[in-house]
Design a protein around this nucleic acid. Structure first.
Ligand code: NAD
Ligand code: NAD
Lengths: 209, 209
DNA sequence: GATTTATTGTGAAAAAAATCACATAATAAA
DNA sequence: TTTATTATGTGATTTTTTTCACAATAAATC
């Protein structure tokens, strides 16, 4: 069964919506409600669940607690994930300081940088020299890494990560990294997303005229 | 003609690839080369161009300079875009300090925050009280805004932006903002992207077994 | 206990996106 | 000048994704 990326993203969104419903004290939810909460159709919700073998009660909707646990299990959120970041710049620091990751079972174990001035072994999340990257990844059995170095260092950093055994990467550098078999690379390209907004904003303006 | 979001994203990627080719001194490029550079097929490249009415020379490929200008025009990158950011936290600061935006014709005119301690009118990009948001947007005719406030303030900030006349928004808060007619909202959900990596990494591991 | 009502679950249908494949045209070679 | 070669441009086809539509069924009402 090959699941489309969109579908996995929607699972994350359902999970998010369920967290909110849970906090509000709800116990049951219908495909309609979830659909509204994440702006999709209710058949999309049911189709997604059906793909992952998730089922509810006809007439009764879905038990939030149960649904939440099932989705979390599918997304692998029932275990803590240890990750590392390479690049202790602005984005790297933002990620490091983001409290929600910890709550969501995402634990940043270390940040690496090539600039000696950035090293700080005493920090609650240590900032280490990138030379120690491989050793750390292997010793701590880290599987997932985030790249927040400038564009021209990103491929080098990826190669080092893969060499050390990393299997999944989230990359913030605006560059098309080389693909490796069996390795997941997902890109966050902020400038591209902003250019999308610019494009549609001007398109919409032109349509009005 | 309604253009899919993926298609616009690819345009941005082509533009990026073309910048690099230009810097390397190339003057012509084939659909095959561009395809390799952004990991798509060559017919995808030609289909995309055909959608936007971009054409090259049979046998001769595309003139890089010309192609670059055409794509930039479509993306609206032949004019400078003035934008504002609301939320001078970690992500807001990262965006503020990102030099590439300026080079790409994206000019951050001000950042707004509700925390008095963050205000700094002397900074090269001023950090202003969010109370001044509407006045600034209207006086400066700002059309595009970025939301980098916490989740629970994001809808409020969006409402204020729309009220002031903003037409396109890039939102970093992990929340499904209410849709407004004629307003473009594009979301960057970093945690969701990381969860995607986690999902596919574990799926790939399971497949190996 | 029968009947009505509401919601799921899922094949079938429709829509959207990507790929194929080849006629067409520009260039290079003979 | 003719022929061979090599890319483009796009209609047709395939694949993927989403939506439709309704039978199945659980709960509520009568
Ligand atoms: N800041 C933004 O808003 C923004 C926007 C769009 C894209 N990006 C992209 O995100 C990435 C990070 O951006 P940033 O603003 O945080 O950059 P930054 O310059 O603030 O930080 C980069 C860090 O990487 C470190 N580094 C450089 N080479 C390294 C190497 N080989 N090994 C280890 N560390 C190395 C540097 O010392 C620095 O600390 C960049 O690729 C950038 O293009 C950032
Ligand atoms: N930092 C990360 O790595 C990260 C990761 C995933 C998602 N996000 C999301 O991005 C957004 C920004 O994250 P951050 O880490 O930069 O947050 P942050 O807490 O560092 O900064 C938020 C800023 O917004 C300001 N603010 C709050 N309410 C406001 C209001 N009503 N008007 C104006 N300003 C207001 C605060 O004073 C603060 O300066 C959040 O929604 C967060 O969930 C961040």
């Amino acid at each position: 069964m090959n699941i489309a990326k969109n579908c996995v993203s929607r699972l994350s969104s359902y999970k998010n919506a369920l967290t909110k419903l849970k906090n509000l004290g709800f116990t049951r939810v219908f495909s309609d409600n979830l659909a509204d909460l994440i702006s999709v159709t209710s058949s999309q919700v049911r189709k997604d669940f059906s793909l992952f073998g998730i089922s509810g009660n006809r007439k009764g909707g879905y038990n939030i607690e149960e649904l939440f646990n099932q989705i979390n299990h599918i997304l692998g959120k029932d275990i803590v994930h240890n990750i590392i970041i390479v690049g202790a710049g602005y984005i790297g620091k933002a990620l490091m300081k983001y409290k929600t990751f910890e709550k969501e079972g995402i634990k940043i174990r270390a940040v690496f940088d090539s600039d000696p001035a950035k090293i700080n072994r005493e920090s609650s999340i240590p900032i280490l020299p990138v030379k120690e990257l491989k050793e750390f990844i292997q010793a701590q059995r880290i599987k997932i890494g985030i790249i927040t170095v400038p564009e021209n260092s990103a491929q080098l950093v990826l190669d080092q990560m893969i060499d050390a055994g990393i299997q999944g990467v989230l990359n913030f550098a605006p560059i098309n990294l080389k693909e490796y078999p069996g390795i997941i690379i997902n890109n966050v390209n902020i400038e591209l997303e902003l250019e999308n907004v610019i494009y549609y904003t001007q398109t919409m303006e032109n349509n009005k005229k």
